[in-house]
Design a protein around this nucleic acid. Structure first.
Lengths: 225, 225
DNA sequence: GTTTCACTTCGATGAGCATCGAACTATTGA
DNA sequence: TCAATAGTTCGATGCTCATCGAAGTGAAAC
């Protein structure tokens, strides 16, 4: 028989579980309590939801002492949620009551393992403008000069070769409705930002908070603006 | 605020609506009655579901006399359903009670606008073997000789250039767990199969039924087996 | 040891919603 | 004009499931 998509979809289609999954798009493993707070339910309710999500193989769980850390099962699950975020934001064009935490989210946020938001879109634009990446039939490819550039800032492409993930991949941004960079290279860039101390993850959201000097370095390295 | 993915997901997460959406993955517009039969509910129930799907912008509707034809809203929606089909089939590895209609579905079926199933996977393998397409960092690209080959069988690449869709795109097959060809080229190939009369759509499923001579032509043209 | 904290299980409650019968409108075809 | 067909609206019914209080386990801290 044809697989029944309603099982997985209904797991995501419940607002409490959806909050949890969206929170886990931050890439970080979270405990049951943290997820309960995030979704604004009691720990009993959270426990019930989380066991369903694990059983449905959308999450994996790792036990550490008396804590249980939950995480998205795979990049594939993250990509599914991403697609949902995009379609949803396209539909909900109406009630765009942009709050304060919202503007920070739009500026820079984490999209499972890469950078998203205004800054990510600006970065993508700059890479295209400098001909480090090109869009060809709506696929994103790295150019020879792009390869040289990234090698000069520390990327080891040999290591990526073995990975099963696409190196470059454009990912439609739900807030900007334009492309940003995903794939292994997108992941590397975000890691590099953290490693350099240019920005830090917000404790309880997907917001990425750049510090002033970090932002300056980021702009200059990638020739933004 | 972050878009609330539960709204869209819950629309898909109801089994009756999921049947309807899966049926519409056949690419053909279907009437409310046809979808009611497909999902095994009364016309009243179907009507209620369909209006929700239209309101949620997963479907578009076209009125024709006393009929209403429903269709997936866009390629994006089809891609979302595809991703769901894949994740679902990976999870449901257990109860694989393969029925008779199932084997036809696995052989060749439509995936919104391109060919899927065993034959599609074999086609993809042959194109790779002949170096007409290459996989590079898990992106699928057409080669120079591939371009020549497809031009020789009637593809007009200039027309594709304008389209916003990727030319080649690999799409993971839920039944085979291997890649088949999607994108504009995948769409062209399926259209070409129908135009040549090699196969026809099943009336009430996603099965693509090849006739004997059609299958022979298909195998020889694409050097399969 | 005792206390505290993280998480789970059970059971009762209640809200949301899929379902369909009955009655309706609208279109086609005779 | 009348009958048949496609689809809708309304209201009643009943099931599923999210929710949380109460009570439990098990690990860590003191």
């Amino acid at each position: 028989m044809e697989p029944n998509i309603s099982i997985i979809a209904s797991l995501i289609g419940e607002s409490t579980r959806a909050s949890m999954l969206t929170a886990l798009m931050g890439g970080k493993a979270l405990t049951a309590t943290e997820l309960a707070i995030e979704a604004e339910v009691t720990s009993q309710t959270a426990s019930s939801h989380l066991s369903k999500l694990v059983e449905g193989q959308l999450l994996v769980v790792r036990k550490q002492g008396r804590h249980k850390y939950f995480q998205l099962q795979s990049v594939e699950v993250a990509e599914l949620l991403e697609k949902l975020l995009n379609i949803t934001s396209k539909v909900a064009k109406t009630n765009t009551v942009t709050g304060p935490s919202d503007s920070r989210l739009r500026k820079a946020r984490i999209c499972y393992d890469h950078l998203a938001g205004e800054l990510a879109v600006a970065l993508y634009g700059s890479l295209v403008r400098n001909k480090f990446i090109i869009e060809q039939n709506y696929e994103t490819l790295i150019t020879e000069s792009g390869r040289e550039f990234f090698e000069s800032i520390g990327v080891n492409f040999d290591r990526f070769q073995k990975s099963k993930r696409p190196l470059c991949k454009s990912c439609l941004d739900w807030s900007e409705r334009r492309s940003h960079l995903a794939g292994s290279l997108g992941q590397w860039i975000l890691n590099d930002i953290f490693k350099n101390g240019w920005a830090s993850k917000d404790l309880d959201s997907r917001v990425i908070q750049f510090n002033q000097t970090g932002l300056k370095f980021f702009y200059s390295r990638y020739d933004i603006k």
